[in-house]
């Protein structure tokens, strides 16, 4: 077999290097997708799809850089998912369902328990306080991008600064918020 392992993925897995690398990188791949998908659960689902693809591939295939291939496949799955989910996605559709969906006579209820709602409300307050405490520019960038759902480019345009600056503002905001809201 002419398999060249890439990086640290040289161990075990019989003759299916790609599958072995997948099993080793599985968690990393989930983490890779979750930021864009904004959900660990969705990322897990997509990685499951990736697993099915990898498992279905011919074991002896000539894979020179299995890790790179896996990340590329994962990124493609993500692009497809985001595109097809765009219509249904709560975020991209900007239509947030509250606790209940009413479609014609069909009524789907998922009302949280009263104390869950209370905990959620307290948590929201905490998050809002933390955002309000950010320095003005940082807070504004975070709010426009993360809460109002503008792209980084739109946020940059709205604030009259470069996109790079927006990315820095938001990164700094996430870092502060993570520290402030450490549990």
């Amino acid at each position: 077999m002419a398999l060249a392992a890439s990086g640290p993925s040289e161990r075990g897995g019989g003759d299916n290097l790609l599958l072995a690398t997948f099993l080793e990188k599985r968690e990393n791949l989930v983490l890779f997708l979750a930021a864009r998908l904004r959900s660990m659960a969705t990322a897990e689902d997509l990685i499951q799809d990736l697993y099915l693809k990898v498992a279905a591939m011919e074991p002896g295939a000539d894979v020179r850089a299995p890790a790179a291939l896996l990340y590329r496949m994962a990124a493609n799955l993500m692009v497809d998912h985001v595109r097809s989910a765009q219509r249904a996605s709560r975020r991209d559709a900007q239509w947030r369902l509250e606790t209940r969906v009413t479609l014609g006579s069909l009524d789907v209820v998922s009302e949280p328990a009263a104390d869950d709602a209370l905990v959620a409300r307290q948590r929201v307050r905490l998050l809002a306080e933390a955002v309000a405490e950010l320095p003005p520019q940082m807070g504004r960038a975070f709010r426009l991008h993360k809460l109002e759902g503008r792209s980084q480019a739109e946020t940059a345009e709205a604030m009259g600064v470069s996109r790079k600056m927006i990315e820095q503002h938001i990164s700094a905001a996430v870092r502060r918020l993570a520290e402030r809201l450490r549990t």
């Binding site: 990086g7 990188k25 990393n28 791949l29 983490l31 890779f32 930021a35 864009r36 890790a67 790179a68 291939l69 896996l70 990340y71 590329r72 496949m73 994962a74 990124a75 493609n76 993500m78």
Partner: peptide, 10 residues
């Protein structure tokens, strides 16, 4: 994010 970002992230 692209596949290359993924490798770097890894």
């Amino acid at each position: 994010a692209t596949g290359e970002d993924g490798v770097e992230f890894d």
